Simulated assay, not measured.
Amino acid sequence: MAAIKILFTTDVGLMSLGVIAFIIGMGTFFARLFRRKMREDAARAAAGGN
């Protein structure tokens, strides 16, 4: 319980939360980007394009 209090009340804890949120957001962004690029590449290959 003390760890959660430190996480939400101290500047170091809040910075840690910010970094965790940023990393999760970045991972989501890259996963969506890579998936979209793979779909585009597969559609281009199916259409016979370069």
Rank of each mutant, 00 (worst) to 15 (best):
F29Y: 15
A21V: 15
F8C: 09
M1I: 08
N50V: 14
G13Q: 02
K37H: 09
G49F: 12
A43K: 15
R32A: 14
A43P: 03
R32C: 06
G27E: 08
D11M: 10
I20G: 01
I24M: 11
T9D: 04
I20F: 09
N50S: 12
T28V: 08
I23H: 00
M15I: 11
F30D: 05
I24G: 03
L33W: 12
A3E: 10
R39Q: 15
R36Q: 13
M1T: 06
K37W: 07
V12M: 09
F34N: 09
A31Y: 13
T10W: 01
G13H: 00
E40C: 07
D41H: 08
L7T: 02
A3R: 09
A46I: 05
I24K: 01
I4S: 05
I23P: 01
F22R: 00
D41P: 00
I4R: 07
L14W: 05
M1L: 10
K37T: 10
A42M: 13
R35Y: 07
K5L: 09
G27V: 08
F30S: 06
A3D: 11
L14S: 08
M26E: 06
F8R: 06
F30G: 00
L17P: 01
M15V: 04
G18T: 05
G25K: 03
V19K: 05
V12K: 07
K5I: 12
L17M: 15
A31R: 08
A47M: 11
D11I: 09
A45Q: 13
R32I: 12
G48P: 02
R32P: 00
A21S: 13
M26R: 03
R39H: 12
F29Q: 05
E40P: 04
I24P: 00
A31P: 00
V12I: 14
F34K: 11
A46G: 04
R44I: 05
S16T: 14
R36K: 14
A42I: 12
G25L: 06
G25N: 08
T10M: 04
G13F: 02
A21I: 12
M1A: 13
A2Y: 06
K5Y: 06
L33M: 14
K37M: 13
R39C: 01
